[in-house]
Design a protein around this nucleic acid. Structure first.
Lengths: 341, 341
DNA sequence: TGTTAGCACTCGATTAAGAAGAGTGCTAAC
DNA sequence: GTTAGCACTCTTCTTAATCGAGTGCTAACA
């Protein structure tokens, strides 16, 4: 059997209606649907076909139909082909640019959650391709020096280093110059063994300090790769009865609180379109907890090779249309903000 | 009527039992209670008295009794008077000291939540009494300099400053020396107008940069006073039926997500004992959302005048005993960790 | 005077049964 | 190919009945 135009229209109508109401939709409801003048009986026949094709299903005998995962998938794929639209006026909000990346990301997640009424998450950008801008060592006390590591995109990391023997200002100054001339402009991956050994050689008796600094650099990357995730609107799930049963809600909220599970979800590869929008529906989700949800994520770029992902989690009857266009808009915003910088 | 020994024993028994079961407790249950050999009828009489005294109440006519807010209060006050005890072996966990304050605090919250089975929150320490250790300016680009501000306790803040005219290395060096000699060792409150004007005078044509730096200092304090709050175990509330109805749970989880409401709660003054443990029961809570909960918070100190608060949120039938002793232990741990530093 | 057994009574919770309603599948007619 | 009609199914809502935990009160007892 094949999906002709009428079946497709009916399927879309079923999904759209279900998205709005959250209730199984019956044949009568669809027959009243404006642009197809068909009786409920005809619709019933078509529905029967659609069910046979595995696109919709009945929760129980005398209930209406709800979209199956496959049905959603079809709908979503279709959605993703459609053009962007309705660029919302979320600009003002975003444009109060934040000094701190963290705040910006949080705000983004909040914005997304507020706009979609689903739970939102965003992962911090990953930096491994970023170039080092400079390193600055400062004396804090006899046994401590502070290393400030600045990378392109003005990402600043601090690291307190414990040392055995105090260093004087002059030595620190020299080390600063040494480190910077050796490492400036390198991506964190380009700092290889030969760079390091050359550096140590030049540092002479202070090679140990250099060691510590490099460790610090490595570590700041390390901790950054344990991707930070910000979430917002977790409580939106309570708006959807099918997710708000005590156990399910608890599990979901837990996942949001833990965050580390979300990392896997957000970084997994899967079906994506050209803008990196990726949709998991129900069972497709890599997370057990999310089997009753749909997850839509998108990749955003902050320029200079820093990528992160942003997404929403909601019920399977998610308004994919709105979510996708919201994500698109948001990503355009992010792009704009960081292009300017 | 006065609360004699037997009434007190019965009240304690009621509360303890209610804490465990979450169900209203009847006279028979209490009469079976080991150390008082009384029939249920006698207990009933006593209960009747206790109810008259406003210490317990009946949800409905033919139900058992549950403690009233006043009853809880009495119990809690009694608890707080008791000595510390059962120092748990949570040490190992805590002692993997974290480099980053943030991680430590998060871990603390997690620990607290896991140990008590309630939702936990912890506020970052507030720094306003802390002394400046040093300020370090570095050139990032033609129009940007990075100010690193280090305060006692090794709290490091970064701030990117936009400037109009590029500065050369030498000038930056001079400014660094100038700033540090002028500001070192001052608490953030001690930097007053006279310090500032003297500083500007000395900076000459670069007084504007000094201005920016001071702004940055001020701002880093500012943002720090918008206390950071970390939470954990929010989903624990689902373990208590009286809190896990959809609306209540949603509200509570929301409050946890928002966090800013928690700030008010955590910083409010109220009844505290000598260790700064503070208990809000039901209506006593400053937050509308928490009217069905109890909140226990304690002050922790990180040395050098940095204080923060840590606490749990749970049902009114909270095991105050356990919570208080857990809090005490945790605070002792924190103390130990930071004393060593 | 304090304690206890006994009993009637109350009121939420649980269960059962019935009615209502939404929606289907199928058949027969158009 | 489309539609009206109808029997049938299954959930949900409503109502009533029953159950049972727990009380308050009274009267008897130590």
């Amino acid at each position: 059997m094949q999906l002709d135009d009428r079946k497709w229209t009916i399927l879309k109508a079923i999904i759209k209606t279900y998205l709005e109401t959250g209730e199984p939709v019956g044949s009568r409801t669809i027959s009243k649907f404006a642009d197809l003048n068909l009786s409920s009986a005809t619709i019933r026949n078509e529905m029967s076909d659609l069910e046979e094709m595995g696109l919709i299903l009945q929760p129980h005998t005398s209930a209406g139909r709800i979209p199956s995962d496959a049905g959603y998938r079809l709908y979503v794929d279709y959605m993703l082909e459609e053009k962007d639209r309705e660029v919302t006026e979320m600009k003002e909000l975003v444009l109060q640019r934040q000094d701190k990346m963290e705040l910006l990301l949080k705000q983004m997640a909040k914005l997304l959650a507020a706009n979609t009424n689903y739970a939102a998450m965003i992962s911090g950008p990953q930096y491994h391709r970023t170039k080092l801008k400079f390193i600055q060592l400062s004396i804090v006390s006899e046994t401590q020096i502070l290393a400030v590591i600045v990378a392109e995109g003005n990402i600043v990391k601090n690291k307190m280093l414990q040392i055995e023997h105090g260093l004087d200002q002059k030595t620190i100054l020299e080390l600063n110059i040494l480190l910077n001339s050796a490492l400036n402009g390198l991506t964190l991956e380009e700092i290889n063994l030969s760079t390091i050994s050359k550096l140590k050689e030049q540092a002479g008796i202070h090679s140990e300090v250099v060691n510590r600094v490099l460790d610090a650099v490595a570590e700041s990357i390390q901790t950054e790769e344990e991707v930070e995730i910000y979430t917002s609107g977790a409580t939106n799930i309570f708006k959807y009865p099918e997710l708000s049963s005590s156990e399910k809600a608890s599990e979901l909220i837990s996942a949001f609180e833990e965050k580390k599970d979300l990392v896997g979800m957000i970084s997994q590869d899967g079906q994506t379109d050209e803008t990196g929008i990726q949709v998991y529906i129900g069972q497709e989700s890599p997370l057990q907890t999310m089997q009753d949800c749909s997850v839509v994520t998108a990749t955003y770029e902050l320029g200079e090779g820093m990528y992160g992902r942003i997404g929403v989690i909601g019920p399977k009857r998610m308004d994919y249309d709105k979510v996708v266009s919201t994500l698109r808009t948001l990503m355009a915003q992010l792009d704009q903000i960081f292009k300017k910088e």
